Computed example of a mutant assay.
Amino acid sequence: MIKNRHNTISLFLVLVFGFVLFFIGTDGFSAFTAETARVKQLIDDKPKFPEVTLEDNKGRKYSISEFEDKYVFITFLYTSCTTVCPELEYNMAQVYDKVPSKYLGEDIVFLSISFDPERDDPATLNKYKDFFNSDGETWRMARISDQAELKSLLDRFGVIVIPDEYGNFAHNSAFYLVDKKGSLINVLDYKEIDEAAKTVINLLENGTEE
């Protein structure tokens, strides 16, 4: 009887200890996965958009300062993708459509950035944008030709891109929201369209994401 009680107490202590370790290790259960933890860290760190040269669908070249005093809603893609990228951009189009038109181009710009600059030249991006009714102005598509600059942006924003031998890429996908000073302030689930649109609209109307 005493032995059973000791076993029960020992088991209880092991469970409690494991529970505490899990709580600490997952930052209070807010990070059940590595991806969730990564996103949480990005939002906490608020990295700055680095100095890179964007070349958009019209062949114009500029830095992120082109969008000074505007929020920037960003996706990362490559146009040869036949899996997640079309869904990502289609969902971005739905968020774009939910934002009141008075804010588009004035207070916020949508920007899709290709991480396949060799194939995604301005002409290709200009053609690709038409599949999603992007106007090329308030929603632009761009590439970063310099590989070192591209890598600096992907690394800073936690975008994982792994090429394969067939010219495709394994990559993570999300909506990235940059504030008017060029800092990343949120990473949103690209499948949660209504939630992403609500976050953007609240930010535009009230200056907060709540």
Rank of each mutant, 00 (worst) to 15 (best):
S65Y: 05
D120H: 05
E210C: 01
E68G: 01
G25R: 12
S114V: 03
F12S: 02
S183T: 11
D27R: 06
Y128Q: 03
E68Q: 10
F22G: 05
R140E: 01
V39D: 11
K181E: 14
V161I: 07
R119D: 08
N4V: 04
I64K: 08
E51C: 03
K48H: 06
R5Y: 11
P163D: 13
I2P: 10
N168S: 09
A174W: 02
I9K: 09
V95C: 09
D69Y: 03
E68F: 06
L153A: 09
K129A: 09
P163H: 08
Q147R: 08
K151V: 00
T36K: 07
S101M: 04
Y71L: 08
E106V: 05
D97T: 05
V159Q: 09
H6T: 01
L153M: 05
D44N: 10
D146R: 14
A196W: 00
G28P: 10
D146F: 03
K61L: 06
Y62S: 04
L203I: 09
N57L: 07
P50T: 04
F23D: 11
K129H: 13
T138V: 13
F76E: 00
E89T: 00
C85P: 14
I201V: 13
P47M: 15
M141Q: 05
F12E: 13
K98F: 15
D45C: 00
Y103T: 00
Y128V: 15
L203A: 10
N186D: 12
V16Q: 05
F157D: 10
Y128C: 03
F22V: 11
V52Q: 03
L21Y: 03
L104T: 13
V200Q: 12
V84D: 01
I64D: 02
A31M: 15
S134V: 10
F12K: 03
D69C: 08
L184V: 09
E51F: 12
M1Q: 14
K3D: 13
V187K: 00
L125N: 04
I43M: 12
V200T: 06
S10F: 15
K151Y: 09
I113G: 04
P50A: 06
F12R: 14
E87M: 11
T75V: 02
V52C: 13
E106I: 07
Y128F: 07
L150R: 02
S80R: 13
D135Y: 12
D107R: 03
G182F: 07
F17Y: 12
S10W: 06
H171Y: 07
V84Q: 12
A93M: 11
C81F: 15
L15V: 07
Q147F: 04
L42T: 15
P86I: 06
V187L: 00
D135F: 09
E149D: 05
F23M: 05
N57A: 06
I108S: 15
K61N: 07
G158H: 04
F29W: 12
N202W: 13
A142V: 10
F67Q: 08
L13C: 04
E137L: 03
D120M: 09
L150G: 12
K3N: 08
N91P: 12
A37I: 06
E210M: 01
M141S: 04
